[in-house]
């Protein structure tokens, strides 16, 4: 019973294979960060040899380490075993207020770092998927001092890694920021590239202690699927605990 519940998100997202782009979107009232942690834990599963490159703009390493440790995944050990690459971008300042060229430099350097890491890990033998995670996209924009074009360029560069090395992507973004019309590209373009879009929202009736919000998962399906109706939308509630997240359909929670 419990097992099937925990897999509701897995079910909706589908089987784990390389070259997938997952876009997680949340809002002020409900944080969607736990979905990111879920994917992080899944990628670092002891049975696989997948590698995660984590680009953190919002929290220091200790934050993720503590959360994942409670979920039974030791990031420090994975880091030592070269399965987890943590890029701390908490203090990345691209603009430097001197000129426009510097602004792009910061992101370019970051992309260079990512590409280098991807190259190193994909050249190693064995089949492994490299997952690139970004927490979160809106803060890249802040670091780039509002030049959303540079951020979009950066994301496009990253997406090219998918074609070249078969990398997967998981990005977190805040949907409610982009409610006004002129800010749209930064949410629409990643959504266009994404195979799976996961939205975390509060319940219309507000939050409760046993239902922390709802997830809407839009699975666009992959190209290799033959059927036309491959796109699926699922909606379910969730409750976040320290070590596990409960997913359940509305009203089915005991």
């Amino acid at each position: 019973m419990d097992n099937s519940r925990a897999n509701l998100l897995e079910e909706a997202v589908g089987i784990n294979k390389g070259g997938r782009v997952v876009a997680v979107e949340d809002c002020v009232e409900t944080s969607g960060a736990f979905v990111l942690y879920h994917f992080l834990k899944r990628s670092l599963h002891p049975d696989s040899s997948d590698v995660v490159i984590f680009i953190a703009f919002s929290h220091p390493f200790s934050h993720y380490e503590r959360i994942l440790r409670k979920m039974g995944c030791n990031l420090t050990v994975h880091r030592k075993n070269h399965r987890f690459v943590f890029l701390d971008m908490l203090t990345l300042e691209c603009p430097d207020r001197n000129g426009k060229e510097r602004r792009q430099d910061g992101l370019l350097a970051l992309y260079g770092e990512i590409e280098k890491a991807v190259e190193i890990y994909s050249s190693l033998e064995g089949s492994r998927t490299i997952t690139i995670m970004i927490d979160d996209v809106s803060l890249i924009e802040v670091a780039a001092n509002g030049s959303s074009n540079h951020v979009l360029d950066f994301l496009h560069y990253c997406y090219t890694l998918k074609a070249k090395y078969g990398c997967s992507f998981v990005t977190l973004n805040h949907e409610d920021i982009y409610s006004s019309a002129n800010m749209l590209p930064l949410i629409l373009q990643p959504e266009y590239f994404a195979d799976v879009i996961i939205k975390a929202e509060p319940l219309a009736t507000g939050l409760a202690s046993d239902v922390h919000g709802q997830l809407t998962v839009l699975n666009k399906g992959s190209v290799c699927d033959l059927g036309g109706s491959s796109s699926k939308v699922r909606n379910f509630h969730f409750r976040v605990k320290e070590n596990i997240v409960d997913y359940f359909y509305p009203g089915t929670q005991t």
Binding site: V28, E29, T30, S31, A33, F34, Y37, H59, S62, H63, R66, I67, K70, L207, A208, S209, H212, V240, K241, E242, V245
Partner: peptide, 14 residues
């Protein structure tokens, strides 16, 4: 109170 700091944990404060 709209949001409570959640450092080192993923559980939201309700």
């Amino acid at each position: 109170v709209h949001k409570v700091a959640r450092i080192n944990t993923q559980v939201p404060a309700i």
